[in-house]
């Protein structure tokens, strides 16, 4: 409760300062709009449906792209985690690929697929896949050997050992991987959409920039930030905590 009040006060102070700068008229309205204008723009955007369409499109890209990246990332991760050969051959390149900022893939996607949704989805997939693969790989490497020894004395071997012990034992790191893949995909999504022909939140942002609508720009930035925080806190953070607790990896 006390924390909630602190946070609320903080945001009120920020909004107050912002309104103050706006009222002081140092800058024209199209550079520093009033927070009230931004709020109105957001409400109107939702009522007229433009923002809802953009949000819907963004979520469509994200869900398709993230699902694919989790799927491909898991497959790659399992191969690298299980096969020493594959890991020694390709593991290092995966780290290199993972360190490439997702916006770098946008020109490549546009040349390959044009300015449409396919290019956006491609960027999202690339954004999430490598981090997912790296996490699944370390998930498999970090299965406690004790579990494997115990399972072997209970007559589990081969594929059974894999799906009854290694897979469930990897779940905590797998969840961490999904959480990171989501965060990376979300960033990639915005980069991809910004340079696409829409629809999508990123496209709406670039549209607002073209028409010098600072109120819209700020409004959309706020939406993007809120969604990112809400999904991370309400979905992934909770899920991860529950899993870590059950798996005995949480100290408390």
């Amino acid at each position: 409760m006390k924390i909630a009040i602190k946070r609320l006060l903080f945001i009120i102070v920020i909004l107050g300062l912002w309104e103050g700068i706006h009222l002081a008229n140092f800058y024209p309205d199209y550079i520093v709009p009033s927070p009230i204008t931004v709020f109105d723009t957001l409400i109107n955007g939702f009522i007229q449906g433009d923002l809802l369409t953009a949000l819907g499109a963004s979520f469509k890209h994200l869900i398709i792209g993230l699902s694919l990246s989790i799927l491909i990332g898991t497959l790659l991760g399992v191969i690298l985690g299980k096969s020493k050969q594959a890991d020694e051959t390709a593991g290092m390149y995966l780290i290199a690929l993972q360190s490439i900022p997702s916006i770098v893939w946008v020109p490549l996607a546009i040349l390959l697929f044009g300015f449409g949704e396919l290019a956006v989805i491609f960027v999202v997939v690339v954004g999430g896949t490598f981090v997912m693969a790296l996490n699944v790989r370390s998930a498999i490497h970090s299965v406690p050997p004790q579990f494997l020894r115990a399972a072997r004395t209970m007559d589990a071997r081969g594929f059974e050992l894999f799906y009854r012990v290694e897979i469930p034992a990897s779940i905590p790191y797998f969840i961490q991987g999904v959480r990171l893949a989501w965060a990376f995909s979300w960033r990639a999504l915005m980069a991809g959409e910004f340079l696409s022909n829409g629809p999508g939140l990123g496209y709406s942002l670039s549209f607002a920039q073209d028409y010098a609508r600072m109120d819209q720009v700020i409004g959309i930035i706020i939406i993007i930030g809120v969604i990112g925080a809400v999904v991370d806190q309400l979905v992934f953070s909770k899920l991860e905590r529950n899993v870590m607790k059950r798996w005995g990896l949480l100290n408390s």
Partner: peptide
């Protein structure tokens, strides 16, 4: 076999 280290499956 019973091990010294915890070897029950937490899931």
């Amino acid at each position: 076999m019973v091990f010294q280290e915890p070897s029950l499956f937490p899931w």
